[in-house]
Design a protein around this nucleic acid. Structure first.
Lengths: 263, 263
DNA sequence: GTCATTATAATGTCGGACAACCGGATAACA
DNA sequence: TGTTATCCGGTTGTCCGACATTATAATGAC
């Protein structure tokens, strides 16, 4: 009764009462608390019971609010139970982006256009940052190249390696914004090219060769070489698509597998 | 009882029973149905009651699953009640991206780097596509320029106009992937520059001038001019930031207002 | 045919209940 | 003493059922 009264009271100043449903306000509130730092990253989110009590709403409502936040990446399950406040990873956001792009039925040309703007730059920056790149990251790059070679007969594996490779380069470029922009495009583009490797088997070896060259240039800290090879690589990718007789302007259909790339 | 039995049965082949909570499986299932087209875009989502009955779970569980999907942009409220299946708008995704980027504390330099790769290209494509641009979009661009002029004394309004301008250009470029990549970066960058206009008042007029030039070039269908002006504009933006004495490498703090840009 | 009114259906919220499960404390054992 | 087994409280996941609110559809009045 009290809540209902305070909810609908209309004052002289008419302060734009929030008509949003409770679960949404719960979500917004939690989000605000996190962004403002009052709920610091690394901490556990209060339990549903606590939130329910503090906010004066039923636990179900709290739960719905939490669910609404959950796939925004701000919150992560730790140990199967309690929720922890975390900084969103590019991965957790990439899924949403990929889905959005996929459903908007972007064409190969559109995606490729953007990729062409970002990937060579990404490679350049990665090479520039090579000195400060962690050994662990470098090792992952080498591993990726080795895996690609091993997977050269498995079309699906090739694509996963391909996506991972470009994501790694972006990661080495040490630019979150870049990673975020690149990830969904790469996922969509490459997952749409399973047919490519059937149509143009030689593409596999060109892919390996290009990745090796890019990887070498990046690890050697040679920005010009890295950028140049990446640009060639992206152009080559498009040429393969054309040679394969695939329509550049047809919308790329979203493969569910490209979503599962980031679980 | 039946559900519990089928849930926990362990067969000889041990087929990796899904241990995910019910609401998550509900969310995934609905998502899959939508992406596969079995729940076509434009339709209404089945009611909670129907879903609850069909899936054999309680309505609360269904609701939690829906909430988890809601802010992925696949689902939208129509008329305050029923949920409609829609193609995600860039706007609905941009919010998630902005938040993620903001919390990752990307620096001005990082964001600017990416912006520099995308905005000039965006302007070029917008100019190239000018012939086919809808009159409504062109009108919005003109309106935006007029508003900017009118708002020249209101810092906060300037920023909103600025963000809207760049979003409009991206929209005219007719490339969803581009819009998606640009939106969060622009939102973060510009919202972080309220101080800029106080420190460098002249920046306001340079902004207006640049936007006018870009807008004119785009509307006139002159790609080179549009790209050139945009590049100058972005460079100028950075110079202003430096002149204002702001630290390019400091992380940009996420202003809650930059989220409210797309409610 | 348009508008007002009523019914119907759907959502939003609530109270309460209970099973499953993780983590820590405690007890038993080597 | 160190390790393992057991127990227990706290938390989440799910369910039941209920009801107020409100949008949509149906009905009737004009």
């Amino acid at each position: 009764m009290t809540t209902s009264a305070s909810k609908r009271r209309s004052v002289a100043s008419l302060p734009l009462i929030d008509t949003a449903p409770g679960y949404k306000r719960v979500a917004d509130l939690i989000e605000t608390e996190i962004l403002s730092g009052r709920l610091p990253v690394g901490n556990l989110l209060p339990t549903e019971g606590e939130l329910s009590e503090q906010l004066g709403v039923h636990r179900s409502t709290v739960r719905e609010g939490i669910r609404a936040l959950e796939n925004s990446g701000l919150i992560k399950r730790v140990g199967g139970k309690r929720l922890k406040i975390v900084v969103p990873e590019a991965k957790s956001v990439a899924r949403v982006n990929t889905r959005a792009l996929g459903m908007r039925a972007a064409s190969f040309r559109q995606l490729w256009d953007v990729q062409m703007q970002l990937e060579p730059f990404s490679a350049r920056r990665a090479a520039e940052a090579a000195e400060n790149t962690s050994d662990e990251l470098k090792a992952r790059l080498r591993d990726n190249l080795a895996e690609l070679e091993a997977d050269l007969d498995d079309d699906e594996a090739i694509i996963n390696d391909d996506i991972a490779f470009h994501r790694l380069i972006a990661e080495m470029a040490d630019n979150e914004a870049l990673s975020l922009a690149i990830a969904p495009i790469a996922a969509l583009l490459f997952s749409a090219t399973i047919q490519l490797y059937e149509a143009v088997p030689a593409a596999r070896h060109r892919l390996l060769q290009a990745h090796r060259a890019i990887g070498a240039a990046v690890l050697a800290g040679d920005p010009d070489e890295a950028e140049c090879w990446m640009e060639r690589h992206i152009r080559d990718f498009r040429r393969g698509y054309e040679i394969g007789g695939l329509n550049m302007n047809a919308p790329i259909k979203l493969d569910t597998r490209s979503l599962s790339a980031w679980q």
